[in-house]
Every structure is written in C-alpha cells, then in structure tokens.
Design a binder for these strands. Sequence first.
DNA 1: GAATAAACCTACTTGCGAGTAGGATACTCG
DNA 2: CGAGTATCCTACTCGCAAGTAGGTTTATTC
Lengths: 262, 262
Amino acid sequence: MSRTARNARTAPLGEAARPALSQRPGGDSASAWRANRKRLRDHDVKRDAVVRTAAQAFADRGFHNTSLDDIARALDVTKPTIYYYVTNKEELLFQCFVTGLEPIRAALRAVRAAKEPGRDRLNTVLRQYAQAVASDFGWCMVIAEHQDLSPSMSEHIRALKVEIDQGIRRLLREGVKDGSIQPCDVKMTAFALAGALNWIAHWYRATHSMSAAQVADAFVTIFEEGLRPRAAAARSKRTTRQRARTGSAVERGTANGIRGKS
Amino acid sequence: MSRTARNARTAPLGEAARPALSQRPGGDSASAWRANRKRLRDHDVKRDAVVRTAAQAFADRGFHNTSLDDIARALDVTKPTIYYYVTNKEELLFQCFVTGLEPIRAALRAVRAAKEPGRDRLNTVLRQYAQAVASDFGWCMVIAEHQDLSPSMSEHIRALKVEIDQGIRRLLREGVKDGSIQPCDVKMTAFALAGALNWIAHWYRATHSMSAAQVADAFVTIFEEGLRPRAAAARSKRTTRQRARTGSAVERGTANGIRGKS
DNA sequence: GAATAAACCTACTTGCGAGTAGGATACTCG
DNA sequence: CGAGTATCCTACTCGCAAGTAGGTTTATTC
C-alpha cells in the first residue's frame, strides 16, 4: 500500500514495473539494485519489485517455465536474494495474485456507497476490472492456476475471487431491481462478464495501440448493447467514441489469446 | 482428487475412450490388408484414449503438475507405454489442443454454406463453441499455454486459433451487413465473445446441474440481449427457458474460475 | 508352430530447478 | 571508528519427472 506512493519515485527499484522485462542490462530500471550503487535499505519497495518482476516473467513464459534464476537475472541479483524477500516460489505467485486482485476489490468497495443506478455502478467496476486485468499482474490473477498453490493459499485466493464474484452479482441484481439492467440470469451473466474481461489478460499488451481504458470502454459498450439490433429510437445513451473505431484493425492478435508478435 | 469415476477400467489401455464396440476378429477371413487395417484402428483408438486421459489429467492438475506416470497410472499402464503412442509430453498437449479445437472449426465450416441471417449462423457457432470448451479438451484448448510447446507446434496452434477468430469476425461482419446484428466494433466483440466462452473451461464441470447445451443457450441469450434494458415491445425473440432459471443458484462456483468443490 | 511384429514391461540415466548453508560486504548508529 | 545488522553472494544438495535401453509377452501370418 505504501508502494503506490513510492512507486512514482525513480530512486530505489520502484519501476522494475513498466518496461518489458526482457530489456538488456544497459537500459534502465530493470534493477534499481544496480542503478544506485549504494545498497538501499528499502525492504518493501524491493520486495514489490521482486513481485512485479516475477509477475511479468510469469506472464511471459508461464509459471513453471520461469525459474527463480530467471527472475533473479532480470533484477540483476542472484537467486538467494529472491529468497531473502520471499519464502517460496509459491508465495511469490500468491503475492502476484493478491496484488492483482486488490484494485478490483477496491473498486467494488468504492461503489458500495454510490447512489447511481446499478448499471452505472457496474460499469465503473467493469472498467476498473478491465484495467486491472490489463496490468502486469493480469496474467497471475487470471491465468495462474490455483493448483500451483498450497491448499491454504489456494483457499485464500478463492475467497477473494468469491468476494469479487458476489460483488458483481450484487450489482447485477440491484441494477435489475432499479430497472437499469435488463432482467437476466445473474449468475450466468456474471460468468460471461468475468470471462470476457479476464480474457483480456490473454491478448492485451501495453504496447498495443489501444490503452487499457479504451479496451474497457469498448467492452462496456458491447455488454450494454448486445448483439441483437436495437430500435434506432432506443439508442439514446450510446456514445460516439465507440462508433468511430468500428471495424478498425487495431493491432495484431487473435481472440483466442495467442499474441500477435511471437 | 479423483477426477471423476471416469476410468473405472482395469483393462490395460482398452476403452477409456469409448464404448469401443469391439468387433469380433475371428470369423472374417482376414486378408492381410484387412488385418492390418484392424490393428491400425485399434492403435488409433488407444492413442485417442491416451490423449483424452491426458486432457482430463491436465485439466485437473495442470500440465506441469501432471507427470506422465500419472497419466499412465490412470490408464493402468506404465510410462513407456505412453511413449509408444506419443513421442513427447509436448506432443501430447499438442494433440489435446488440436482435438479440442476441431469441433469449432467444423462448426465454422458448416455454417459457411447456410443462408440464414448472420446472427443465427453466429449463434449456432457459439453454441458449438461453448460445447467444445466444456468438453474434456476444454482446458487444453483454452488454458494451456503455448509456451509449453515448441515454436513449430505453437505456430500451428496459433494458426488454428486465428482461423477460428477470423471466422467469428466474419460472421459478425456479415450479420451487421444483413442487419441481424447491431453495428459494433467487430474485433473487440470477437474478443469479448471468445473470452466469455473460453472462460467456461475454467468453471464448468460436467457434474454440474446445467448441461453444456444449457450453458451455451444461456450465453447466447446474454450476448443477444445486452445489459441495457430493451423496450418491452422489442422482446420478440426472447425464449422463456431463460427466464425460468433466472436467479437460481445452479451450483457452486465463482465467475473467476476457482471451482466450488475441491 | 516358427517367424515376425506389435504391445507392453522393468530398470535405469539425466538434467533442471527449488531450496539451503554458510560466508562476505555494505550500511547504520552509538 | 567499531559493533551490529541488513543485504547479498558462492557453492552446494537433492528430489522429481522426462525420456531411454533393452528385454518379455502376446497376437498374427505363413
């Protein structure tokens, strides 16, 4: 939590974040360890850097294809150093999970108070959701398998996911009740929404021409409209931003999740 | 953790796959050609059994957490026997991929000829898609990572997925053109559809109270309707089957893909 | 009823990667 | 400056699982 504030600083190690991890040492921030000659004592920041770098590596090569040596190398340190900040490879994955899920939980908490109609509250959550899934931790929170965690950690993650799921279903129910959402099978709809959004982690890369926010907007529009044409009169709320991009080949990639550039 | 009471078989590598309507070899005055053909067929059946069993095991424990000894044990054979039917663990995964994707490709080919409006053709494909993803091979085709395949095999898979993606986009375009589908961002819509459907592999278990076909129907309805309420008059095509189940707690599970029963 | 091949086995080798022991170096603070 | 601690390293262990060598059993064909 102190991280977000700290991260803006360039100093310690905060930004092993943004740039792809595959960069060669000469570049920049892959390791603030080396960047500042001095040995910094900022345990939390470094730990976060370890977790974030791990998340990027996992997203890149998969959990089991990523050795701790790989992660260490990306940070310009050695493997035992990783173990200084984290007890396990497993715990590393767990931290990625939790870190990634947190923003979604926060979004859900945030709209609890709001008094807008259900659909609008849902949409803001969905937008946050999409952003989170498009982040460095998207892969971990979505694709990583709970099989790779111990039962207790797996159960912990599960509880977080249940919380999110219930939150979305609740918004759906409330929206149906206040008339802002079409009556529907709440459970299945929640599945469909989560699936579409989670899948973003499979194909989205920050290097694409669409920002995560744009993707989020596009998806919200799709969810709202549905495939079946609406009477022209009913199009009241449709924004134009969507229409403009219709049909454009934004970037490479397939809907099935294999990325364009190998 | 027993996956299901699936292969309660004891016979080595016979029909874990199918009822295996074994035709008696005796009577036939078997020409060499015939005999060869029969042996070959047997071989194929067993190979399919290996692949299917592997798919189930992968879905259960994940690719890297499943040893070939595990798969062998599930088939009541030993590891080298697996290597008799398959060259690699990698190839095993590859076969799961291909086998799982095939029905979807078939569905796309099937509707190419049809002269219904685009939306209807799309819906039938989506239904088939959902069924495929809910099959034994769902996990492999969706969740398995191409990282675990050699470049050539990975590229092969990628090509298949591109084909499916393009097929869906094509249907969307045609539907928009013939007026049966709401104008939309075709690419993003394809992503959303594929994501929602693919995600089924994360949560669906055949033991659930909903059949795969029911899930498919529910999803198609959701896609068609959209979240924003429609004018009551416009509800022409809506089926009642959907309305009946609204709000029912069908079974355990979360939209985020951790299964209910451990 | 041999000869031949298919189908399956036991008993290995091998490499990779998670995790550790124990020591070296740098920073902080009195 | 020197004690104490935080940080990081070199150099290992060790188990697991992929893959193999080479033999044994069972079916098939002449």
